[in-house]
Amino acid sequence: MAEKRRSGVTVMSDSKSAKSDNDKEFLCQAGVGDLLRDALLKLVEARPEDPIGFLAEHFSNLASESETGTDGEHLVQEQQLLSRALWHLSLAHHSQRSAFNSNIRVAYELLTQAGPQRRVPGGVRGRLYTEMLQCLCSEGGLSGTTAAPLLRRIRCHNHEAVPFELFRQGVITCAVFADYIRKSQCLYAAVASCPERPAERALCQAVLGTLREALETSDCADTARYLEASAKISPCKVAQAMAEVRCSSEQQEGPTMDAQEFEDAAAELFIARVRVVT
């Protein structure tokens, strides 16, 4: 493909075919073909939103890998692997489930390489896994206090080896939780309606009640549960619940609830449904 572009550029006096043979040999020797094929495969698999940034990062990672060598300091190497794993996880939103899953797989493979004896049999070390979940939460915009109760449930002990399926569940849980908290913040903003004043307590409780009901679905097939939940949290249901509260309490100036309390309450609903890792 290089030759095609070069045909426009004036090359020196030597004949074109000799030049292009020379070029081919050079590219072959330098391993450019394999390098680019590999990069394109990775690119097409991940389909990042910013492909140029992806390639910049990809080649930089490769270059620093070969430059630092394999037996650099463990801690530095581990941090590098961790940030690369996090970068892979940030490439696709979790709702793009198949792309997200394959990125999780890449991140998992990366993290299994960390540590003094290279590979822990059975998976990623618990300490690294927990650290990664913490980073995921803070990258998702969660405050430490909001994320802590969730992390307590899904973290592993430092010495444990984390198998892929558990790893995947942990990552998805954190990603979904961060989204959920963002949504609940929007919900609070909508209920408060006026950004300077806190929202009415009664209204907040009505909304939280609706949310709780939506999360408590009956035990049937997954698809049916999704439908049931989305019906229960539909705008008209929320509006109905809020209207009922409005009718029963006529006075305007009731007690209020601040944003943090609302967020905590919403987070609690979510976290209560996350299974503790044992």
Partner: peptide, 21 residues
């Protein structure tokens, strides 16, 4: 790739991967 071929002596002293990066 075209640039690399054009300036191969200069660009390859740091390694091809670094060049692409």
């Amino acid at each position: 790739v075209a640039q690399l071929l054009e300036h191969r002596e200069e660009y390859t002293q740091f390694g091809v991967v670094r060049y692409f990066a």
